[in-house]
Design a protein around this nucleic acid. Structure first.
Lengths: 123, 123
DNA sequence: GTACACTACATGCAACCGCATCTAATGCAA
DNA sequence: TTGCATTAGATGCGGTTGCATGTAGTGTAC
């Protein structure tokens, strides 16, 4: 239990650090930005901020800012929701989709490297 | 592999959030502060900043500040190293030992809760 | 319709982090 | 000894985070 926690702590630190460096240098993305793009691509449709919030491990405020940064970089666009005009849809742009596509192998490589010796998770 | 990463991400987020709240509210400690105290107690001797740096998943600068906070709270004391006067020894105080002792069950409870359904790590 | 509770998202703020850099001590070479 | 590269730890700075709060839209009770 404590060992599991230490394992999580160690892998998280190593992976975060690598991802930040690799994704940042090669694609100009932070780990949070990539994660959000990745979620959107997986769903392959417009998503409400709130839906993203459930999937990404960020507070609502942090997510709001990540989306703002992505929008500024033209990788997503925000649009009001007609059904509920408080809501905001997040839409990935072509540039966003391209950026994600080029960054994905980098992320996979980092994870493969760090979890190469990973124990298998068994219930 | 990606699933392992998602697992790490989810557990880390949940645990960090809980630890921050529980340790903060009940004992006035942040997760990093607790982790550093915990490492010192486990070694049960004076430690160089650098030695701590290898065990805690923090940059050297962050660790330096954590130690500064702990010293300000009288939970550890810093002393120069006679062999190498660039070095700094970190010494836990009685108050620090007491604080750690009272916080440990809280940390264990949080981890037990979060890793209750944890898969076993098998190679 | 008016008032009020509630929800979705944005934003001010303070705390923490990592990187780059600074200071001081060490050690080695000429 | 003097000079210079190296190391330990502290600190300035910019960036991200979460919490608390603000703003605007929704829904319900009267």
């Amino acid at each position: 239990m404590v060992e599991t926690w230490h394992y999580v702590l160690a892998k998280h630190a190593k992976a975060m650090c690598s991802l930040e460096r690799e994704l940042g240098d090669k694609h100009g993305l932070g780990p949070s930005e990539f994660e959000v793009l990745d979620r959107i691509v997986h769903h392959d449709k417009k998503l409400r901020i709130q839906e993203l919030c459930d999937e990404v491990h960020l507070s609502q405020s942090a997510l709001s800012r990540v989306v703002a940064r992505l929008e500024k970089a033209q990788l997503v666009s925000r649009g009001v929701c007609d059904q509920d005009r408080r809501g905001v849809f997040v839409c990935i742009t072509e540039a966003g989709r391209a950026r994600h596509k080029e960054a994905l192998p980098t992320q996979r490589a980092v994870l493969a490297d760090i979890f190469a010796d990973a124990p298998v998770l068994v219930r």
